[in-house]
Amino acid sequence: MAHLLFLVFSVFSAVCAAGIVLSRNSVNAAMFLLLSLLGIAGLFVSLDAFLLAFLLLLVYAGAVVALFVFIVMLLDTGGGTSPARSLVAKLAGLVALALIAAGLGSFALRGRLAAPGAAGIPAVGASLKAYAYQLFTLYLLPVEIVGFLLLITMIGVIVLSRKEEGNP
C-alpha cells in the first residue's frame, strides 16, 4: 500500500512538473505547479512527515503559488501564450537540452546512487518538538541567514516600489 502510494504520488508530481515546463499558457503552468506541490505533500504524508506536508501546503501551495497566479493575471489578463522565441533563446535551449542529456546519459552509464546508510542519518523524529529543537540548535545559523536574506528582499522591494515625492 505504502509502496503503491509512493509510486502514485511521485509519478503524479513528476508528470505535473513536466506540465509546468511544457504548457504555453502561464495560468496552466501555475496550476500544474500547484498540482505538483500537492503530489509532493502527499509524498511527505506517506513518509509520516505531516508537519512538512502541511507547511508545504500552507506556505507554497496556499500563498506562493497564489501570488504567482496573482502576478500572471495582473501582467497578462488573458493568461496568454508566450511569444515566439528568438534564435538565441532556441540555441540556448538546445545547448541546455544537450547538457541535460549528457548528464543523464553519463549517470545512466556509469553513475551510482550511494544510498546513505540508515545509521548515517540522525534519528530526530517527525514530531513538532523535534523539528523545533533542530531549528533552534543545529540549524540556527542557516535559519537566521535565510531570515536575513528575506528581510533584505523585503526592504529592497519597499525601496524599489516607493514613489518619489512629486513624481508619481
Partner: peptide, 21 residues
C-alpha cells in the same frame, strides 16, 4: 486525528483561494 490539527486546517483551507481566483 492528526497531531498537527490546527496547521492541517489552515493549510487545507488556504487552498480555497484558488476557486475564487
Amino acid at each position: 486525528n492528526v497531531d498537527v490539527g490546527l496547521l492541517a486546517v489552515f493549510a487545507v483551507a488556504s487552498l480555497g483561494i484558488y476557486s475564487i481566483i
